[in-house]
Design a protein around this nucleic acid. Sequence first.
RNA 1: GGAGUGGGCCGGAUGGUCGCGCGAGCGGUUUCCGUUCGUGAGGAAAGUCCGGACUCCACAGGGCAGGGUGCCUGCUAACGGCAGGGCGGGGUAACCCGACGGAAAGUGCCACAGAAAAGAAGACUCCACUGCUUAGGCGGUGGAAAAGCUGAAACGGUGCGGUAAGAGCGCACCAGCGUCGUGGCAACAUGGCGGCUUGGCAAACCCCACCCGGAGCAAGGGCAAAUAGGAGCGAUCAAGGUCGGCCCGACCGGCGCUCGGGUUAGCCCGCGUGAGGCCGCGAGCGAUCGCGGUCCCAGAUAGAUGAUCAUCCACGACAGAAUCCGGCUUACAGGCCCACUCCGCCC
RNA 2: UGGGGUGUGGUGUAACUGGCAACACGCCGGAUUCUGGUUCCGGAGAGUCUAGGUUCGAGCCCUAGCACCCCAG
Length: 109
Amino acid sequence: MCTIRSNREIDEIFREGTRIVHPLAIALIRETPPERGPEGRVAVIAGKKLGNAVRRNRSKRVLRAAVRRAGGPWPGIDVVLIARPATATASPGGLDSALRHIIERIGVQ
RNA sequence: GGAGUGGGCCGGAUGGUCGCGCGAGCGGUUUCCGUUCGUGAGGAAAGUCCGGACUCCACAGGGCAGGGUGCCUGCUAACGGCAGGGCGGGGUAACCCGACGGAAAGUGCCACAGAAAAGAAGACUCCACUGCUUAGGCGGUGGAAAAGCUGAAACGGUGCGGUAAGAGCGCACCAGCGUCGUGGCAACAUGGCGGCUUGGCAAACCCCACCCGGAGCAAGGGCAAAUAGGAGCGAUCAAGGUCGGCCCGACCGGCGCUCGGGUUAGCCCGCGUGAGGCCGCGAGCGAUCGCGGUCCCAGAUAGAUGAUCAUCCACGACAGAAUCCGGCUUACAGGCCCACUCCGCCC
RNA sequence: UGGGGUGUGGUGUAACUGGCAACACGCCGGAUUCUGGUUCCGGAGAGUCUAGGUUCGAGCCCUAGCACCCCAG
């Protein structure tokens, strides 16, 4: 899974990306810059307000696993997924449906 | 059987399927991909409160300042940790708690109340004898014990003698101080003798003893596109800078000569064989140490553990490594083991 | 990783060297007004982030913890 590493790029996506909101996760979408290659990239973020390190790490793991099951990363687009308080305790089915919701919206774009 | 004290240990288990990080092997179209096997978070990984290892620095050394520790003896790489002992306090007991050096080195503080808060004076009431006065009261001499009042705390305590009344004025015991002896490495305990006594606060300043260079793995080093600059040696003044602060002191910087190499995003090293785990034997009351055997046990770099099925149980708390180690502290569902104390009952 | 700071009524701030926790806004009641606001009078409301300790006495001193904020790389 190709990930977005630099803080600067993530800040750019926060400013320019399209926002898709779901109770289990917030997604920010943007086209991958050409110099970064044809394959899309993914980043997973868990903010400090979610709780302690165990809770934040679990939120990120669960989101990454859901991305793999959903077939990501998707060619040509960068996706930043932000965990929400309900993410850590969500069921896998619920996460899969959240990812389907986000993918449909990407198709609409 | 009940109540309790101290110590140690565990922290869901087993198997299947699909995935993730790392390592090794094999194959391929050798940046990478596929496949097989192995391995993969904690007792606190946490808070970052101490102590070290390691690395670099422009680190000779000295003085002042600053910080820390504070009964004694050990253990340890070191410690503010641990063990044993002493003293004081709590508990019927097992046992627990204690920043526990110094107040006749000095300075300071002790609100209100009170005569007085530390220098002793005796100056509030007072006590004894006595003069004057109708009484109330006013004075003289001696005293500082007793009683009164205040306060958190009042200038050794109790008793006897002594005296006009009294005072360690004398004596006995107790507390405290000094000194000598005995036991102990020591803290200290204990006995004799002496003179008769000097409030509390040092988590107030301080004194004494001991310890402390600074920074921190984003330490530090290597590779190498791009940009433009540096290093070594020598003599030596001023401004400036660095060595945690200041003063000495040292160095950088500035000048001359010589030489080819120095700084920033990415990758690599550092990066896990270690004050290491387990077992046994031995020394020691113990902390701990010695010897032998055996094992290799996470190393990511936006940061690896998720999903699901089955079975079982007491239905699972607090919580996630980021250079490493020794402690301390804090959080925590539930459970197991050992030793000991008190109470009740039975034999 | 290292360093610094703050915590006091509902809110914002005081408390000098340890000695009765103070002020403003807000809140409640009353008066004034036809009603509301303004104004005036009166009142309630914290025991100082938590747990220990030192002291006769702690918001202040000490130890440990909790929460929040900031700085450097």
